[in-house]
Design a protein around this nucleic acid. Sequence first.
DNA 1: AAGGTAACCGGGGACTGTCTCCGTTTAGTG
DNA 2: CACTAAACGGAGACAGTCCCCGGTTACCTT
Lengths: 188, 188
Amino acid sequence: MSQVRPMRADARRNYERLLAAAAVAFAEYGENASLDDIAKRAGVGSGTLYRHFPTRQALLEAAYVDRIEAITARADELARELPPGEALVEWLNELCVGTIQVRGLKALLGSAVTDGSSVAVTACGTSMKEAAGRLVEAAQREGTLREDLEPIEILRLAHGVATASELANGQGEHIRRYLSLLTEGLRP
Amino acid sequence: MSQVRPMRADARRNYERLLAAAAVAFAEYGENASLDDIAKRAGVGSGTLYRHFPTRQALLEAAYVDRIEAITARADELARELPPGEALVEWLNELCVGTIQVRGLKALLGSAVTDGSSVAVTACGTSMKEAAGRLVEAAQREGTLREDLEPIEILRLAHGVATASELANGQGEHIRRYLSLLTEGLRP
DNA sequence: AAGGTAACCGGGGACTGTCTCCGTTTAGTG
DNA sequence: CACTAAACGGAGACAGTCCCCGGTTACCTT
């Protein structure tokens, strides 16, 4: 029932070009890069862009799937290398760093963990939740993480930490500090 | 040396109208409300708007000064009613609620605690920092708050909590929970 | 190999928003 | 009342989003 027919050659070519151009543009100008400009860079008309990617979100997600995959893969890598609690914290740290440094990624990850967000981002949203879920469960089993925390809550809190750190200086220099404030609490 | 001459009557009138229209528009459409539309609602030309408020930030701040004042005043009120530690937490909770519920306020408060933000928001930024400073210092003296925390860091973290809570469902229902996760830490 | 057709392309154009410029109006003064 | 500096306002230049549809082309079929 799904579209059995493969993409026509020119369609696929333009799709790839758009993706490449989008990655460059989002990295340079952030999530609000001009879509028409992206189309121009890719050497296609804006109509073509909007046909392949109906929304900015769709393009954003497509341009960053590989990076999302890298992040989720990193979760399992850390799980093998470190004790559960440390693995989780380290992963959250790297996640926050990526969120801030890769312009445009923040918007994507944000809507990925937003309740009731569009269907378009469900794909990367669920894989992030699964990756977080494995680390969270392991840490809870180990006894270094509260039992009542959902994986998605951890992701949201990480997003909050990234936001707070971003306010500090735009770079991610305060991530480790704010992350440890979160894990340790604010009491002496 | 400052401008001794008072505003011309028509100027003041338009200024007030713009402020009122801005408050309505920001509340309705959020921080990205159309500025030309605000001018139209106020019954003035867009040139007049831009003359009185050169940037969106300037208008945003002017429209919400009273609310900022209410928030800072609330800090002292809570300081009188509750023990320092509880006063701080309660204030942060109310701050987060306001941040989320009053559309447009988030952007303002965000740039108010951003390092190296424009001079335009310094006014409300410093009064927020002072209000937070009083609560923070009292709590630290009481021994219920880490010594190494700066007031502005608390404000940034509160912004992060508001962001995380906003991701959950758009309303502020998770604020109390995320705030207590922050104060208590993530360990069991 | 040629031809038919569904899929695809591209950019023109309508729309919305930002922000400036400058001719016109008006409040306040003497 | 007249004069002037201050303030007004809206047209218009510019940029971005997104749709629409006449023209093109890749991929079948025979």
